[in-house]
Amino acid sequence: MRLATIRTTDGTRAVRLDGDRAVETGHADVGELLTEPDWRSVAEAADGPAHDRAGLDLAPVVPRPGKIICVGVNYAAHIAEMGRERPQYPTVFAKFAEALVGAHDDVVLPAASQAVDWEAELAVVIGRPVRHADEATAAEAIAGYSVLNDVTARDWQNRTLQWLQGKTFEATTPFGPELVTPDEAGEGLDLTCTVDGETVQSANTADLVFGPVAAVAYLSTILTLQPGDVIATGTPGGVGHARKPPRYLAPGSVLTTSISGLGECRNVCVEEKRA
């Protein structure tokens, strides 16, 4: 099943994607739909107003997650090329909902940063409350997957040992275009990122050190994960900051983030306009 959150003249709506149609489920967004204990059956049975899929205005697939938890340093090949040891535990940090934009929205380059970088990532969306999960329970808690780019202000990230300040600038993080349930998404997905048509990142999610199930199990030991919460699973090699010389996003850059079977986010970068 494929789900999305769309913008309409009456506000956002959760939809089930059927071929060339998008059928409303009766919920304001996918996050609200996922709070239904039997959300999958509810979505399958939905028969609300239908929209032409080709003309959808896509919001972030979950517009306001209660939590966005990101995993860093998580692709084995990337770790090896940096000369680091394979981590024993996930490196985790947070992002806030204000950072999210839709799959085709502009990415706003913060005026305060001169070093805005790309980070293509697989996003995991939680579909039921989960705490102290074993692998089987963690797998059952995953509602589906989506595409995310953890666009990062490197100069702010590296101001201190804590990364958050560079990771959550407003309107920087594409998230979408849709949520794809695990049975349809499959495993071992190809992930790519292009900037102005040039491929800058290419990897397969099978190379993740801590995959989706392991990440859910680990994080659920710390706190309860709730429906609609998002886990960004990390980025592979090819980021701009590691290049010689470094390369960053600029106004007019076209950032495209794709994952096989999940779709793509295509976003134009624009300058921040201060009032």
Rank of each mutant, 00 (worst) to 15 (best):
N149Q: 06
V73R: 14
V239F: 00
T160M: 09
D229C: 11
A76I: 14
R16M: 10
K95N: 04
A206M: 02
V230H: 05
P60W: 07
D38L: 15
A185C: 12
V209W: 03
G211H: 10
G19T: 11
A275C: 08
T257G: 09
P63F: 04
D117H: 01
L161M: 12
A28K: 01
Q157R: 13
P37K: 07
A50Y: 04
W156V: 00
H241V: 14
M82Q: 15
A153L: 03
V151F: 09
G166I: 01
V101S: 11
C193E: 04
L148Y: 03
P110G: 02
G11F: 08
G252V: 12
H78E: 01
R274C: 02
A206E: 15
G11N: 09
V254G: 04
A215I: 01
L225E: 11
A217R: 15
V151I: 10
G252Q: 13
T137H: 01
V209H: 07
V23A: 03
H241W: 14
T205K: 06
G240Y: 02
G228P: 05
R2E: 14
E198V: 15
A80F: 01
D20F: 04
V209E: 02
G238T: 08
D190C: 08
A153V: 02
S253K: 12
S41W: 03
G252D: 12
Q114C: 00
E140G: 09
E32M: 06
I231L: 15
L33M: 02
Q201A: 08
A123S: 09
E24A: 14
D10A: 15
P129V: 04
D196C: 13
G83F: 10
V15W: 05
L219Q: 03
S253T: 15
R21E: 11
R40Q: 12
S260F: 09
P49K: 11
A171N: 12
G234K: 06
V268A: 13
T235Y: 00
H78K: 07
K67E: 07
V108G: 03
H132T: 00
R154V: 13
T192G: 03
E32C: 10
L56P: 06
A214G: 10
R131S: 13
V71K: 00
G102E: 08
G211V: 01
G66S: 14
K67S: 13
E272Y: 06
D20T: 14
T199M: 11
A80H: 13
V209Y: 03
G211L: 06
H51G: 06
S41A: 15
A22R: 07
V147P: 09
V15Q: 04
D150C: 10
Y75L: 07
G176N: 10
A14C: 15
R128W: 01
A217P: 04
V30S: 10
V125R: 01
G66Q: 14
V239E: 01
V125I: 15
W118D: 04
G66D: 14
F93K: 02
G238H: 08
L33K: 07
G188L: 04
A94S: 12
Y218G: 00
P246K: 10
G261R: 09
R84C: 05
V130C: 06
E170V: 08
V151E: 04
G31T: 11
T235D: 04
T181H: 11
G83H: 11
Q226S: 13
T91A: 05
V73N: 11
E140M: 09
V125F: 03
N74T: 07
R86G: 01
